[in-house]
Amino acid sequence: MALFYEAQVGAVRLYEAQRLRLGADGLISDITLYVRPLPALTLLMARLGPDLARRNGQPGLARLIPLASGAMHSMAATGERRTMPRVAPR
């Protein structure tokens, strides 16, 4: 089974597909998420990651996630805006 949706994270449009695998009992046994573009994923991680880490009893990780995801978001957003247009087919 698959689900698809679109959302907005800040000023970035996010597209997601979810692949759901059902067990013999008919309940969801596995979920795989596919998110694009990469800057949307890194921004989502920066916004949701710290809260999820705190909920799982990992306050140190909650403090680290904004730093790591902020750096990844900066690289992904720069690549999306500046690098990829230069290598696009002409």
Rank of each mutant, 00 (worst) to 15 (best):
Y5C: 05
F4H: 11
A88R: 15
T78F: 12
L22H: 06
A17F: 11
Y15K: 15
D51E: 13
M75R: 08
H73F: 04
L43R: 01
A53P: 00
Y34A: 04
G79M: 07
L38P: 00
R54H: 11
R36P: 03
L14D: 04
I28C: 13
Q18F: 07
L61W: 04
A77D: 10
P50L: 13
R54S: 08
I28R: 12
G26E: 05
V12E: 14
A62C: 04
R63G: 06
R36T: 12
G49P: 00
L52E: 10
D30H: 12
E16Q: 15
V87C: 09
L61K: 03
S69M: 00
P85F: 09
I28A: 14
G23T: 03
R81P: 00
D30W: 01
A11N: 15
R21K: 15
A53H: 02
L44F: 03
Q58S: 12
D51L: 09
A62Q: 03
L52N: 07
A11L: 13
A71M: 07
A17R: 15
E80Q: 10
E6H: 03
L43P: 00
G79Y: 03
L67A: 08
R90T: 11
S74N: 06
G79H: 03
R90I: 02
Y15P: 05
A11F: 10
A2D: 05
A17D: 13
A40F: 00
G23Q: 07
L27D: 12
M84C: 08
T83P: 01
L64S: 06
V12S: 07
S69H: 00
F4A: 07
P89H: 14
M84G: 05
T78H: 11
M1W: 04
E80K: 02
R90V: 06
A62S: 08
R63N: 09
G57S: 10
R90A: 14
D25I: 01
A24K: 14
G57N: 12
P59R: 10
S74V: 04
Q8F: 04
P59T: 12
H73G: 03
R81V: 06
R90K: 14
D30S: 10
T32G: 06
D30C: 05
L41N: 06
R63D: 10
L33N: 04
A11I: 11
S69E: 01
A77C: 06
R81T: 02
A46S: 11
R54C: 08
G26R: 03
M72D: 01
L3C: 02
A88Y: 08
G70N: 01
E6R: 08
L14S: 13
A53R: 02
V12T: 15
N56R: 15
T83S: 14
L22W: 04
A40C: 08
T32R: 09
G70K: 00
V35R: 04
A62N: 02
L61G: 02
Q18S: 11
R21C: 13
R86N: 11
E6Y: 04
A88M: 13
I28W: 08
R21G: 13
L14W: 06
E80V: 05
R63S: 09
E16A: 15
P89Q: 12
Y34W: 07
G60T: 10
V9S: 01
T83V: 15
S74I: 05
E80D: 15
D30Q: 09
Q8I: 07
A40M: 02
R13I: 10
M84N: 09
P39A: 05
L67Q: 10
A68Q: 03
I65C: 00
M84L: 14
L33I: 08
A11H: 13
N56F: 13
P59N: 12
N56Y: 14
G79E: 06
L14R: 08
